[in-house]
Amino acid sequence: MSVLSKLANVDSRVFYWILFIALMVPFLSPIGFPITIAENTRELYEGITEDEVNEGDVWIMNFGYGVSAWPECHPSVTVCTKALFREGAKIIFMGPHYDVELTYNKIHDTVREDFANKVYGEDYVFLGYITGGESAIAQLASNIRSVYPTDHFGTPLDQIPMMQGVNTHEDIAGVLSSDTGDYGVHFMTQWQAAYGSKLAEIGIAMNGSTDLPRWQAGNYFGLSIGSRGGAELEILIGELGEATTAMDSISVSHLLLIFAVILGNIGMVVQRRSS
């Protein structure tokens, strides 16, 4: 039996161990590969900074991801929150995952310095959990109060200074939807397509393939794709964080996978020839 044939029959767990260890090594000894900025990420960043955002504009930040996708989505969300706050925008936080409160607490951790200068109810508000799919997002566009009569903490929206006069899509300057699932698409169909709302997607890398044509067609003014998008945004804002740190680990694991694919294909060719 040749070495390649033996390799073809190696127990999968061997690969799993190698992968898990390989993911850890770059954290212990960082490499720091250079990262270039993709056009879709740059357009996202430019769309939430400088002339594109006016002081006092109200933006929606949708946390459409649970704890498992924190490494994918949260770095981008962190940068976007920082950027919007620094432009003087007000932010409505909300999300369709029942662990949305954990994500809201995490954004307080990762954007601590900016939150320190902001006042709850005046500069930002947390509306909490939303469910109901496309119906909920469509209804949010026409009447926010029917979906959220109160904020997450039970305060009626009418008693929140920032929400005075904010009740439909017309009162929202833009939406940033960060998703593992469909909510970005719901915002696209029920907000952007229906009313021309300004919308950007902070998606998981897996959805990057389906999101890119939409960004090219102008449905999203910008797009961040997974942790790589997060790392690019961290470079753009000039504050390196979680995603940039993770990029070395991503590099090593991807190389390992490509090596495995090459090995598998060589094995196939050798086996074909011998048979």
Binding site: M206, S209, I225, A246, S249, I250
Partner: peptide
């Protein structure tokens, strides 16, 4: 699509690998 899916799956695993080391105070 597969190439992007790999990035997504590995990023999630990377988060766990990082947590593993953080609790051990190695990083």
């Amino acid at each position: 699509y597969f190439g992007n899916t790999v990035l997504f799956r590995f990023t999630m695993l990377t988060g766990r690998a990082q947590f593993f080391l953080q609790v051990l105070k190695l990083i």
